[in-house]
């Protein structure tokens, strides 16, 4: 089993993701420079957060054109598990691998804090080990995490069970006060229709060890490993 962490100019959570996967979860992990156009030999892709290309034009708008994203698209079309975290989520939205777009936070402030998330579905490779309704404590750190999609898209996301995480209070209630950025329907993470591509603003790689304040993030990576093992990887 081998996990790819694509690295773009301006990625800055790549080492956190690598550390969580390689040293905490203990799976073979390798950085993949964005100029590479193949993901041959990899079984899952973790697109890390950061400020690719300095967020020029729009967050993720430049990174979507990197050769590695063609490989990610093919990998996703083949059913391979892909998770985009924070800027990684923005890149997936810009690439059209996930629907919707990110706006500036409603508060116009960069938010950097622990938030609570309610897991909505275990149907993705990253949430198979997390019962729906479970409340996770995971940090966010972003200026543009205000998820937007038109009403028809939002309705379709709900109907097809593509909302994977919602911002909520500690008891699991998705209140307005627990929404850190103004996201539509408190959406913190969504998947594609098939369920193999997940995008989320919160950072599971930053909280995979108790000494960092929470180990809840590790549950996503453990789920991914269990999913891959089941597939014989």
């Amino acid at each position: 089993m081998r996990i790819a962490v694509p690295v773009f100019p301006g990625s800055n959570c790549d080492h956190d993701a690598y550390h969580a996967l390689k040293h905490v979860v203990g799976v073979d992990t390798a950085f993949v420079w964005h100029k590479r156009s193949s993901l041959e030999g990899f079984d899952a892709v973790v697109i890390p957060g950061g400020f690719t290309y300095g967020d020029y034009l729009r967050c993720g708008a430049m990174a979507k054109l990197s050769p590695v994203m063609d490989a990610v698209r093919r990998f996703a079309e083949g059913g391979g598990p892909v998770i985009g975290i924070c800027n990684g989520f923005q890149i997936l939205l810009e690439s059209g691998l996930l629907p919707g777009a990110m706006m500036v936070n409603e508060s116009l402030r960069f938010v950097c804090e622990y938030v609570h998330l309610r897991a909505e579905t275990g149907r993705t490779p990253f949430t198979g080990g997390i019962a729906p309704g479970t409340v996770l404590k995971i940090p966010v750190a972003h200026y543009q995490g205000n998820y937007f999609a038109d009403d028809a898209t939002l309705a379709a996301l709900e109907e097809r069970r593509q909302v994977v995480f919602r911002y909520c209070d500690p008891s699991g209630d998705p209140t307005a006060g627990s929404n850190p950025n103004g996201s539509a329907r408190n959406i913190a993470g969504i998947c594609n229709e098939r369920g193999n591509v997940l995008g989320m603003m919160p950072h599971p790689e930053r909280c995979s060890e108790e000494e960092l304040g929470s180990a809840d993030g590790r549950r996503l990576f453990d789920s991914m490993v269990a999913w891959l093992k089941e597939k014989g990887k």
Binding site: R58, A61, L65, L93, P99, A101, A149
Partner: peptide, 8 residues
Amino acid sequence: RLLANTVI
């Protein structure tokens, strides 16, 4: 394809 994000 690039200059605008036609979602928003």
